[in-house]
């Protein structure tokens, strides 16, 4: 129903389910994944406007997701959320052009606003 697709990756199901419910209400298409591997597999098949990913996951972690996504689709905005916020991670993510960085628990309203900003940017760059 929407032209915008959002991917949510978190190894805890509750995060994906809650994010999906709130973002679908806004009219976005949302796909959720419980690990980085399956998410990256899907990324290769489909373009997502925004990827929201947990930082700390077994196997492929958030930084690896960020780098792979940015390599494949520089236009995709990546939002990182993490329960273990530390400055080094944030700096590294910023260096890799993360769109936003939130500590958990994340206020859904702020996450939505961040998604909207990313999509606005996407629309503007395409209009120009």
């Amino acid at each position: 129903m929407s032209q915008f697709s959002i991917m949510v990756i978190d190894d805890e199901k509750i995060v994906g389910s809650m994010a999906r419910l709130s973002l679908e209400k806004e009219g976005y298409d949302v796909e959720t994944f419980l690990d980085g591997e399956s998410a990256l597999k899907r990324i290769k098949e489909k373009f997502f406007h925004v990827v929201i990913t947990d930082f700390k996951m077994k196997g492929v972690d958030g930084l690896e997701v960020l780098r792979t996504v940015k390599r494949l689709y520089p236009e995709t905005a990546v939002i990182m959320i993490t329960a273990f916020a530390n400055l080094d991670v944030a700096i590294e993510a910023l260096r890799d052009d993360v769109h936003d960085f939130f500590p958990k628990p994340v206020k859904i309203k702020e996450l939505k606003a961040s998604v909207e900003r990313a999509l606005k940017k996407f629309k503007e760059s395409h209009e120009s």
């Binding site: 959320i81 329960a83 994340v106 206020k107």
Partner: peptide
Amino acid sequence: EKLGGDYLFDINY
């Protein structure tokens, strides 16, 4: 507040 539905949280929280 955090479990009230306005936040994304996980079991760690």
